[in-house]
């Protein structure tokens, strides 16, 4: 099986005074899509391209866990690199960027993110 999967855990420092929105950018001129769902929900919030997806007010999502699966198809013959930028448009470091590479041309790659929202002032941040 050529598809590689990488699991990633993220703690997002959340500004509780602002609404949280998510935009995912697929880099390296590759094709990619995502599904976004709360851990406690059965149905995803959105499947496909993720642009300015409203997640809720900062204070209402504290300690909640967001599950994001991003799939890539390596269509760029000049590189095997894949990358995704997760921009929560909220907090002091809103962008989380992850990089990897497929082994062979036209392979698939999957990022599985588990994002926990914490108060910006959280001591473990």
């Amino acid at each position: 099986m050529a598809t590689q999967t990488r699991s990633i855990e993220v703690i997002h420092k959340t500004d509780i005074t602002e609404a949280v929105r998510l935009t995912i950018t697929i880099g390296n001129l590759q094709i990619g899509g995502s599904s976004v769902k709360w851990e406690t929900d059965k149905e995803p919030l959105k499947i496909g391209p993720i642009y300015d997806l409203y997640l809720g007010p900062g204070n209402s999502i504290l300690d909640k866990v967001l599950l994001i699966e991003t799939r890539f198809f390596d269509r760029n013959e000049n590189t095997n690199n894949v990358s995704a930028m997760y921009d929560f448009n909220n907090g002091k470091e809103p962008i989380h960027v992850f990089y990897d590479a497929v082994k062979n041309e036209k392979d698939f790659f999957i990022f599985k993110l588990k994002v926990t929202f914490k108060n910006e002032a959280h001591e473990n941040i």
Binding site: M1, G33, I47, P49, R75, F108, I110
Partner: peptide, 27 residues
């Protein structure tokens, strides 16, 4: 790109050849 982003999430990625053929059409 938008259609491909949705299609890739609907794929049965275990069926690799079939999945690759679908995404190659988008590409």
């Amino acid at each position: 790109e938008s259609n491909a982003a949705t299609a890739i999430m609907m794929l049965d990625i275990e069926k690799e050849a079939e999945a690759r053929a679908i995404m190659t059409k988008h590409d």
